[in-house]
Design a protein around this nucleic acid. Sequence first.
DNA 1: GCTATCGGAAAGGTACACTATCCATATGCG
DNA 2: CGCATATGGATAGTGTACCTTTCCGATAGC
Lengths: 203, 203
Amino acid sequence: MPTIKYYLREGLLPAGVLTSPNQAHYDDEHLRRLRLVRALVDVGGLSIASVREVLAAVDTRDDSLHNKLGKVQEAISQPGSADLDPLAVKDVQEFFGRHGEDECYDVTQSNVTHMLAAALSAARSVGHDHFRQVLDAYLEGAKIIAQADVEYIAQQRSSDDVIEAMVVGTLIGDTVLKAVRRLAHAQLSRAMFSDGPGDATPN
Amino acid sequence: MPTIKYYLREGLLPAGVLTSPNQAHYDDEHLRRLRLVRALVDVGGLSIASVREVLAAVDTRDDSLHNKLGKVQEAISQPGSADLDPLAVKDVQEFFGRHGEDECYDVTQSNVTHMLAAALSAARSVGHDHFRQVLDAYLEGAKIIAQADVEYIAQQRSSDDVIEAMVVGTLIGDTVLKAVRRLAHAQLSRAMFSDGPGDATPN
DNA sequence: GCTATCGGAAAGGTACACTATCCATATGCG
DNA sequence: CGCATATGGATAGTGTACCTTTCCGATAGC
């Protein structure tokens, strides 16, 4: 309960309707919003400041759906470290060139591309400059996943629901994907290294 | 430099060889380890405590490679919130049943399955109980991605390098995948909603 | 009229990741 | 030899983020 007061103070939740100077009314929409905030913080790992940004983007009224989706995507994608290895930036540009994306993004401009470059930069710094080899396969897998995401989002009725489903699907999807990818790793590791059953328990 | 001292204190870096009471020697291995720690913290988003755990698992000597990989995977997979929606647990079990994984994992036992259940639980709590629809497609995409990961890891020479590549590839790969998935989202959104060029810039 | 509760504001607390200071030793330079 | 500087090791302090507690005045309900 004190946490709710805190979120109200931070502007993450809209104030309730004051029925009297000391009585505010909160409806289901408030509860829904609260749970969304908790999901963003707990599962999405977003900071309070990021959540505020996301909600602001979600609540924007006057914009095309595509643009709004883009803005929300930026808000839910926090950039990595500030200083990038120029070689990593080049890796990203080459990757974009390979897939005809070079005209749509400026690597240093968007949070998403910055995230990608920061990750490859980090890989380079620990001696894994060949990690970029996996990029094409990642995109191939990501396309399948994104297709499912889009299909899921397309089930929503209102465009407000589309936006919210996009936020939830992207952030919770990140975690789901993390877990599923690890399951796939374990499956492959089992297939490759395990001589028989019995030593595949994770503990 | 003060940070290095801090990491030494916290046991994240091995102490240097004391050539004299006030002079310690650090070699390339120390530097490599330091960069690994930085990558885990900065890109992987791991806490200092988690990094310590991961390094302990990495430095374990007496274990089969497969088991060691399993232990390291647990260490780099922090579980979600403690209380899970039982329905979400059932979702995960059904998912496992569908893919013949039901014998290999106890949902509440492993960090990875817990992560998955926590994410689906969060989805349910915000009214997206149908998000589990995407699971099968996620696995399909994840298999392609995991295949690339395994191929990358298999390039390593020593089994120590395999373990390290697995840590780096998994954690940095998480971020890379996050970014690539968002790119795929944008691509699809562009294809679906954009009437023409010009409004596809993220800013 | 009396108590319990609520909204709102301000101060306090906790956890984490550093960072700064101190001190004794000891090395390198003149 | 003597002295400034640097180093390892320990202790204490800093900054940030996310809550939590406390207080206050007003009112709702009995």
